[in-house]
Computed example of a mutant assay.
Amino acid sequence: MKFAHKTLLTAAIAIFPLLAEAGAIDQLHQFLQNTRTLKAEFAQTVIGKNGRKPQLSSGLVAISRPGKLRWEIVKPYPQLVVGDGDKIWIYDPELQQVTVRKAGQAISGSPAALLSGNNDLEKNFTLKEAGEAEGMLWLEATPKVGDSGFDKVRLGFAGSDLKAMELQDSFGQTTLIRFSKVERNPALAAGTFKFTPPAGVDVVGE
């Protein structure tokens, strides 16, 4: 089963990692001050509200603050989201289609703004400590606007490492993400955050 474009974009802009220990909110602010780039592997499970079989996928993520991202699903169906700071490109090779959105519109009220925007988080989000569960410390972020596409995001940490993210979106779906091989402040090639639609694909939204 393939991801709908809106689901893919919502998940993609929700995967930016944080760091937390005792006092997750303080660690989030510290992370924003000290982290410029990040890359990791991820495993993702999307659970629908109607009890359908969960959708499983895995891939790679990279970010460069402010505003640049790459969210690449490798298995089972290749899909790619690239944000260059100006536009968000969503590429589905099987459908031969690229959807384009302005980065400001796509990210402004989204979980991506937790990391890719400025550090004035409380302007757009209500942040709170969410306790400990499953051996992780959790932070919860709730958007202050009603059209962000999601209800809340929970992030789970073990020590200083991001291990999990849970996104509850406005469509009744829950997206569970587990991160591994996280690298902070790696050197990333400039082409990581560039995208040119392949010849012959349909481009929607530009």
Rank of each mutant, 00 (worst) to 15 (best):
L8G: 00
A11N: 07
A14V: 01
F16P: 03
F16K: 01
L19V: 12
I25F: 04
Q27W: 10
H29S: 12
L32S: 10
L32Q: 14
K39W: 01
A43G: 08
T45N: 00
S58K: 07
G59P: 10
V61G: 13
V61I: 13
R65I: 05
W71V: 08
W71R: 04
E72P: 07
I73P: 07
K75A: 14
Q79H: 09
L80Q: 11
D84N: 15
I90S: 05
I90A: 07
D92R: 12
Q97G: 01
Q97A: 08
K102W: 06
Q105G: 12
I107R: 08
L114M: 12
D120F: 04
K123S: 09
F125I: 10
L127A: 04
K128S: 10
K128G: 07
A130Y: 00
A133C: 01
E134D: 14
P143L: 05
G146V: 00
F150M: 04
F150T: 01
K152Q: 03
V153S: 06
R154T: 00
L155G: 04
S160N: 15
D169G: 08
S170Q: 14
Q173D: 13
T174N: 10
T174H: 04
T174Y: 02
L176V: 15
I177E: 02
I177L: 10
R178D: 08
E183A: 13
E183Y: 08
R184Q: 11
A187E: 15
L188E: 10
G191N: 15
T192P: 10
T192I: 06
P197L: 07
P197Q: 08
P198F: 02
D202T: 14
D202A: 12
V204W: 00
G205T: 00
G205W: 04
